[in-house]
Each structure stands twice: as C-alpha cells, then as structure tokens.
C-alpha cells in the first residue's frame, strides 16, 4: 500500500477559541471573525491584542477569541478602545461593530475617535439592518428597504437617507486608512483579508486610525436564503456602497495620518505651528 501523506490545508486560526459561535448560516460575521483571527495569527500579535466587542450579533465575540477582550455598551466601542489604547499604547486595540452600533447610537464616538486619529483598528459590519434585535431599520438600510420598523419600505421623506460611513469619514484629518470590502466570493474574501491586515498593520506601524467596512448580509432578518441574500446584496447594496479604498495616506505618499493632515493644513499658520508645550 502506498504511503499516504496528509497536508493540512485548513485549520482553526490559533487566536480563535475552539467554541461554537452563535452566528447564523450565511452571515458574514463568521467569515470576518475568522479573517480577523487569521490576521492576528499572521502578525503574531495575539498576546498584545485587546478586542472591543459591540452590542449586536457579535456581542459574544469575547467568547470566540483568545485575546483579551472588553465588552462595550452599545455604540461606545471607539471610546472604550480609546481608553485601552491610551493606557497601553503598545497594545493592539480593535473595535468590531455593526451598523446600528457604529453609525447610529455610536456615531459621535465613531467620528471623534476617527478625527482624534486614535491609533486603533475598527472593523465595521454593514448589513443594513439591526440583526440581534430582530430586523429593525438601520442607519444604513437602503431607501425602500423593508424592515420590521420600515414595513412599507424605508421612506426617505420621513426616515432620511442611509449613511455612507467610509465616504463620511474620508474627510477627517485623523484618518489613515478606509476601505470598503465584502465577503461574498473567494476573491472578495481575499481582498477583505488584505484590507483587514492592512488596518492592523497600520496600527502596529503607528500610521493612524484605520477602518474596514464590510458590506454584509443578514439572511435571517432579510428573510432570504444565504445565496439569495448575497445576490440581493450585490444587486442593491454594492451600487449604494461601492467597494474600494476611500483613504490611504500611505498610498497618497505620506508617512502617516499626521503628515497628511499637516499637508492639508499647510496654508493655515496656527495649524502649522509646533505645540506650545
């Protein structure tokens, strides 16, 4: 009998604990959790990484990851991450948030952590709905999208328009890197991982605030099969939330966010002065 050799092609990332997650089939959280864990493994940073979990479907994330974790109140992850990072600047601190958490109740924390240029990494899951509470309208729900609390479709005349987070944050000086990705195909998953890796590497290198927005699905609350939900996402969400890089100060030729901000404010005398301290 010929000798059989086994090659291990796929295994659990070391920084994920051997536990069963609570994510639904077809949900992007499982994929993105894994990508984050792979990146932590590859950068060898598990021992210095602190995650901040949100309120939403990924609320139990601290049970899935082997690194230290802090569970934040709804929307407050960037503020909690700020506290963690300011105390131990050598730690790698990431916040993982959904659309309601990041772009509605936590919008102030999001914008201000970004404009302060906090040296943190934010992973933003945009699936256009509140998942954990059972499918209410989110700040990123599309016009005319039916949800539990927009039963006739999101009426922009009364409910207003969705928030495009990457575009919104791209105007802020504290931001180093913004990219919108999705995880519906192997190619897109590879691209998403590249973006997440960059967002963590930026923190390791002290380049500045980095956020990766993952356009995602919610088959359970959208009332679709996983396959149909990805199809719906491609058809409706990607035109509204185009994939791509929205800010990358390094690609723009700057060393970090601070240098890019200084260049932008070069004509402003007071902004160009050194600190008074």
């Amino acid at each position: 009998m010929a000798e059989q050799t086994e090659t291990l092609k796929y295994e659990r990332p070391k920084s994920l604990l051997p536990v069963v997650t609570n994510y639904c089939p077809g949900c992007a959280h499982g994929t993105v959790n894994r990508l984050v864990a792979e990146v932590i493994d590859e950068l060898g940073i598990e021992g210095t990484t602190i995650g901040v979990s949100p309120v939403g479907c990924s609320v139990m994330m601290y049970q899935f990851f082997g690194c230290d974790f802090v569970e934040a109140a709804h929307g407050r992850a960037p503020a909690v991450a700020t506290g963690l990072k300011r105390v131990n600047p050598d730690n790698i601190v990431f916040a993982y948030q959904g659309d309601g958490d990041l772009a509605s109740i936590g919008m102030a924390e999001t914008i201000h952590a970004a404009t302060r240029g906090e040296q943190i990494t934010v992973i933003f899951i945009n699936n256009a709905i509140y998942g954990m509470t059972g499918g209410q309208m989110a700040p990123t729900s599309l016009p005319n999208q039916v949800t539990q609390t927009s039963p006739y479709g999101r009426d922009v005349a009364t409910a207003g328009y969705p928030v495009r987070v990457c575009e919104l944050l791209s105007s802020l000086d504290g931001v180093a890197y913004l990219e919108r990705v999705t995880v519906d195909t192997p190619a897109h998953i590879r691209q998403a991982k590249k973006a997440i890796r960059k967002a963590f590497q930026n923190q390791v290198d002290g380049i500045g605030y980095s956020l990766v927005e993952v356009v995602a699905t919610c088959p359970t609350n959208w009332g679709m099969t996983p396959q149909d939900s990805f199809e719906w996402m491609r058809e409706n969400m990607l035109p509204y939330y185009p994939l791509g890089v929205y800010r990358d100060v390094v690609a723009e030729g700057f060393a970090d966010a601070a240098e890019a901000a200084a260049a932008r404010a070069a004509d402003c005398p007071i902004a160009s002065q050194g600190g008074a301290r």
């Binding site: 602190i50 901040v52 802090v70 934040a72 109140a73 407050r76 503020a79 909690v80 991450a81 700020t82 506290g83 963690l84 990072k85 300011r86 105390v87 131990n88 730690n91 102030a108 924390e109 914008i111 201000h112």
Partner: peptide, 26 residues
C-alpha cells in the same frame, strides 16, 4: 499622564471604562 477632552460625557465615561479595564488609575 493623559488629559483627554471627550466628545461627550457618554464618551468620557466609556474611555474611563476602557482605561480602568486596562488597569490604570483613571
């Protein structure tokens, strides 16, 4: 030390939460 003027009281107390979790006197 660190003095940080937060965007709101809500953010400030959550920064306290993070810093306390990190073991600092805050």
């Amino acid at each position: 030390g660190t003095y940080l003027q937060a965007e709101s009281e809500v953010a400030a107390i959550n920064m306290v939460y993070g810093a306390a979790a990190a073991g600092a006197r805050v």
